[in-house]
Simulated assay, not measured.
Amino acid sequence: MTCDSVDYGSLVWSDDLILGIDQIDEQHRKWIALVQAYQSAVVDGGSAEEIQRTLTAAVAYTESHFDDEQAVMEEAGYPFIDDHLDQHRLAWRRVNGFTAGSPTEDGEETNDLRDSLADFLPQWLMLHINTADRQFARWYRSRSDSAQATAPCAPAAIDDGRVFADIPL
């Protein structure tokens, strides 16, 4: 994977996703594995029980990770926390919208919702890690006395601190 060609639809852990904050990096590894399990269950035609089990695990971990990440940001005094949390809330509403669908008699709506969520989660997660989370990590590391080298493929911040200020939250 090169910095110029991130495939946001392909959810695979790689060193390019390392932010340099151990707690968050470890959670991202686990979260990606859970979302991959859900996506695989849907794409490979897993049983309804497997799909539900993997979805439940991925959604529960999403909520837990969002809470943990918010706590790290609050403790550090991150000045762009509101933008970041807005992104979390939008994703959470989208996930809840997908999971709140009601099945039709033939199960078609349920399958469409599962497929849509299996597409959305990996794309959103890759984009979020590579933009908003990377922006936070860069800010966080810049404040640290033991600042580490910039993580691979880290885009340069613009003046207001947001990496892509023109993308609406």
Score class of each variant (00 low, 15 high):
Met1Gln: 11
Cys3Ile: 05
Cys3Gln: 07
Cys3Asp: 08
Cys3Val: 04
Cys3Lys: 09
Val6Pro: 06
Tyr8His: 14
Tyr8Lys: 04
Ser10Phe: 07
Ser10Gly: 04
Leu11Gly: 06
Val12Gly: 04
Val12Ser: 13
Val12Arg: 13
Ser14Leu: 09
Leu17Gln: 05
Gln23Trp: 00
Ile24Met: 04
Asp25Arg: 04
Asp25Asn: 02
Glu26Leu: 11
Gln27Thr: 06
His28Val: 03
Arg29Val: 10
Arg29Met: 08
Trp31Asp: 03
Ile32Val: 15
Leu34Pro: 02
Ala37Gln: 10
Gln39Trp: 00
Gln39Asn: 06
Ala41Phe: 02
Ala41His: 01
Ala41Gly: 00
Val43Ala: 11
Asp44His: 04
Asp44Gly: 03
Gly45Lys: 02
Ser47Ile: 07
Ser47Pro: 05
Ala48Cys: 01
Glu50His: 07
Arg53Met: 07
Thr54Glu: 02
Thr54Cys: 06
Leu55Met: 05
Thr56Trp: 02
Ala58Leu: 04
Val59Asp: 01
Glu63Ile: 08
Glu63Asp: 12
Phe66Glu: 00
Asp67Thr: 07
Asp68Asn: 07
Glu69Met: 02
Glu69Cys: 01
Glu74Asp: 09
Glu74Val: 12
Ala76Arg: 07
Gly77Asp: 03
Gly77Pro: 02
Tyr78His: 01
Pro79Glu: 01
Phe80Gln: 03
Phe80Tyr: 06
Ile81Gln: 09
Ile81Tyr: 04
Leu85Val: 12
Asp86Arg: 11
Gln87Thr: 07
Arg89His: 05
Leu90Met: 07
Val95Met: 11
Gly97Glu: 12
Phe98Glu: 03
Thr99Ile: 08
Ala100Tyr: 01
Ala100Thr: 12
Ser102Ile: 11
Asp106Val: 04
Thr110Tyr: 03
Thr110Gly: 01
Asp112Lys: 14
Arg114Ser: 08
Ala118Gln: 06
Asp119Asn: 15
Phe120Lys: 10
Phe120Glu: 14
Pro122Tyr: 14
Gln123Gly: 15
Leu125Pro: 04
Met126Ser: 14
Leu127His: 15
His128Met: 01
Ile129Glu: 01
Asn130Thr: 15
Phe136Asn: 08
Ser142Thr: 04
Ser142Lys: 06
Ser144Gly: 04
Asp145Cys: 04
Ser146Tyr: 05
Ala151Asn: 10
Pro152Lys: 07
Pro152Thr: 07
Cys153Leu: 15
Ala154Phe: 03
Ala154Val: 10
Ala156His: 05
Ala157Glu: 15
Ile158Ser: 15
Asp159Val: 14
Arg162Ile: 14
Val163Gln: 14
Phe164Arg: 14
Ala165Asp: 14
Ile167Cys: 08
Ile167Met: 13
Pro168Gly: 15
Leu169His: 09
